[in-house]
Amino acid sequence: MASLPAPLRGVFPVLLALLLLGALQVVVGQLPFFVYLSSVVGVNVILAVSLNIVNGMTGQFSIGHAGFMAVGAYVGGKLALEMKDLAISGIPHGVSDQLQLLASLAVGGAAAGVAGFLVGLPSLRLRGDYLAIVTLGFGEMIRVIVSNLEVFGRALGLSGIPQTSSFMMIWMCVFVVVLVARRIQDSAHGRSLLAIREDEVAAEAMGVDTTAYKVRAFVISSFFAGVAGALFAHFVPIINPGSFTFVKSIEVVTMVVAGGLGSISGSIVAAVVLTLLPEVLRSLFLQVGGLEGGAALAQKVDQIRMPVYGILLVILMLSRPQGVFGSRELWDAFPRWWGRGRRAEE
């Protein structure tokens, strides 16, 4: 890879991922349940990795990520509904759908980014725990606003959004967010963020414009939360205010904290495990317990998920506050030549 010309080196991993995901799309496209599950997992991975940029790398603490997700979902979803009956002429409908999806992802993400800027600029001056409460308040306000607006369908939410999100598109977005997070981590920008995390006053004294860096990190993070929201809107047939509660925010926080604050691969692994675990347990109970007892047990899985998240957070903080991975990365274990642009699971 070292022999590649410099401009290509940046694009190469993207092209490679595109090809790979395209091929996978052909294979798994016929397995709707798998596609659904992998979509849920993908969205959660995007949320976790993007939240990690703020909570992990910068050491700020946002517990309102679902609010930004809601902004992306509603704005992207609304745009998709407006464009629903249109298609771009001259190209196959499938391609046109994907381009429209891309457009609504971009718009949803941008809207969330703007919201992130508006929230971040004033409130990032606040100290950690206060900031946490303000982001929580923001998330709740988004819900109140959406519930009051006729354009966003009030309590019923938006339905009929074209279900155009595909395996390939979701995992491409995962790839992009991981790539962005990694580039930030390795750059001078990322070092400044780390400095802020470790000691804000010292960072400031060393000439780091802490507010500007924090706001930038916040905006990038919100942008991807918005993208995740827009993707969510394109594979869940209906979005309503109830999907973006405080509980969702805490779910994402749990993923980030469990994986390790500052570890991208940690977030990925935690998001995948915590999303799949209930599914696996549910199937397992159904298989083992038979229809009668199994179904009852499987039902309990849904019920105990939230308390388990709570206990998990407490145990993690007491025993390993840096999370399972700490701030190490999975790919650090591989030799350097393994190609540093790849995702952890590959």
């Binding site: 603490f61 725990d129 805490i250 019920q303 105990i304 939230m306 709570g310 407490v314 903080m317």
Partner: peptide
């Protein structure tokens, strides 16, 4: 300080959703 805050959120969740189990 954030470590304690996360713990507090964890306890809050454990209690409020734990009490919902039937």
């Amino acid at each position: 300080r954030l470590t304690a805050l996360i713990t507090a959120i964890g306890i809050s969740f454990t209690l409020s959703y734990g009490f919902q189990l039937d």
